[in-house]
């Protein structure tokens, strides 16, 4: 399992309401991901809500693209990353 940053663009802006609908949308994504061994760890969304940077654990970039299709989410680029903490050396 490797860690990836997934960059996405939402031309019309990303809207996840803080409500049961929003919760349902997120839960649906998590369930679809699980079927392909993909885990959504966390996301960061730009202030204008047109871009997102998502941290994922997955077996391969192809697996992330596959679940993205099922979840109807756009993907621009997938970069394999490793964790680095500034406090590691303290």
């Amino acid at each position: 399992m490797s860690r990836f940053i997934v960059e996405r663009t939402f031309p019309a802006g990303l809207a996840v309401p803080v409500s049961s609908d929003g919760a349902k949308a997120c839960a649906g994504i998590v369930v679809n991901n699980a079927e392909h061994g993909v885990t959504w760890v966390q996301s960061y969304v730009s202030a204008d809500k047109t871009r997102s940077f998502c941290v994922y654990d997955a077996p391969s970039p192809e697996a992330i693209r596959q679940v993205a299709r099922r979840n109807d989410l756009p993907v621009d680029r997938i970069t394999a990353v490793s964790d680095l903490s500034p406090y590691f050396y303290l």
Binding site: F4, S60, P61, R65, V75, D76, I78, T79, A80
Partner: peptide, 13 residues
């Protein structure tokens, strides 16, 4: 095939 796919898509690996 997989390498070309990843380069074209901008994916790692």
């Amino acid at each position: 095939t997989l390498a070309r796919l990843r380069y074209c898509r901008g994916d790692s690996g």
